[in-house]
Design a protein around this nucleic acid. Structure first.
Lengths: 224, 224
DNA sequence: ACCTGAACACCGTTCAAGT
DNA sequence: ACCTGAACACCGTTCAAGT
């Protein structure tokens, strides 16, 4: 009767029972908040109010924990509303991927060691492939096109992301302005323009548009 | 006379005196050989035959060591021979970037925390910007185009890279074939084609060509 | 000056013991 | 069964001492 665990409802400080998913969510939250370096098994456990070793009941390894975090993050991608031309639909899809990656700042340039083959990631890929095939691409072109779009988006998200976009731009701009103009004529005269590409949505949209234009050209040439 | 340090020439086991560069090179070699996880200050020091703390004379931090490794790797990029059309020249440049990233497998998806502003990286960027401006792009378009090409290449290199390309393809293919075809019609019917995009040069070249085509279209439309 | 061992505050994970 | 403290083999880095 006096056991503190009896009540089935939510206690003030208590949570639903631990699960792999909840462990992954907590780990992702911690990593997003304080950086991947701050994520340790011991730290995570104490944050969850459990013994360190209890974590190993839900996750074999720290490596498996990192995998679970990637799954957890990609799960947000399910159910994106897609409409319009095939270009618009792909744009929407890629923006969603980019946003998800951005939402988990240090959480995701982490170590994606192999192809992303969890359920959520595959659903997104399926959506992309359907859009491309319906647009008229054959299977091989559709697969290549999706991969190119995805890796472009991934590269942008992991390398053109916060923190502090303005600081990135300023840092880049002053580094370029400090270059000897005779040795770096193009860069030092385009310092402002180059700095602008270091953050924000617009540089992402630029490349995405070019990629989609290139795909459209391929589609037209194959239809002739 | 009997001091083992007197001789200025190369001893059997001895090396030139330690420097930040040599420390970075050794760290990069170690990380490439055994993975980034195997790189520790203690391990690196003992491999160099010095006390752990001696490393801190050449590098403030482990973080600074990682920065130095990135510098070291990008240094390989200097002096790429560029010729042909602007498309061919950019192709050559991007291939070189991709190869350099591939040469340092775990060494480089590491933590590029900010814009790459070291001398070698900037020289490569300068080359790219010159090619684009000579082709007729204005400064803003050239900056955007270079950034898109670079991030596409970066995404590909860090996410489509070894180890074991064939295993990646097989793993992807069987995961896709295991999907329920009614829920994943596009992916399960294109399992082979999708798997093929998971490794090799050809998928990289596909997206690069589309990007370059899109850029050419932009260039033509701006010239009218 | 330059180098470094010892020490401190951490890690991930094994193992054996607690309930 | 489920959970976990203690212990082991590591970390990065500070500090004070060696030459």
């Amino acid at each position: 009767m006096s056991s503190p665990r009896k009540a089935p409802g939510a206690r003030s400080g208590e949570q639903e029972p631990l699960s792999r998913t909840r462990v992954a969510a907590a780990a992702l939250a911690l990593a997003d908040r304080e950086g991947l370096d701050a994520l340790s098994m011991r730290r995570l456990a104490s944050e969850l109010g459990i013994g360190t070793m209890t974590l190993y009941g839900h996750v074999k390894d720290k490596d498996e924990l990192l995998d679970a975090m990637v799954e957890q993050a990609t799960a947000e991608l399910d159910r994106v509303e897609l409409s319009g031309s095939w270009q618009d639909a792909l744009r929407t899809l890629m923006r969603a991927i980019r946003q998800t990656l951005a939402r988990h700042p240090s959480g995701l340039h982490l170590r994606v060691k192999g192809p992303l083959l969890n359920a959520s990631a595959l659903r997104v890929t399926e959506a992309g492939m359907q859009i491309l095939e319906r647009a008229g691409f054959d299977k091989a072109s559709a697969a290549h096109a999706y991969r190119a779009l995805f890796l472009y988006t991934f590269g942008f998200a992991s390398f053109n992301s916060p923190p502090d976009p303005e600081a990135r731009k300023r840092q880049t701009r002053s580094a370029l302005l400090a270059l000897p103009p005779d040795e770096f004529p193009a860069l030092s005269s385009a310092a402002q323009e180059a700095a602008e590409t270091m953050a924000g949505d617009e540089p992402f949209e630029f490349g995405l548009d070019r990629l989609l234009d290139g795909l459209e050209a391929l589609l037209r040439s194959s239809e002739d």
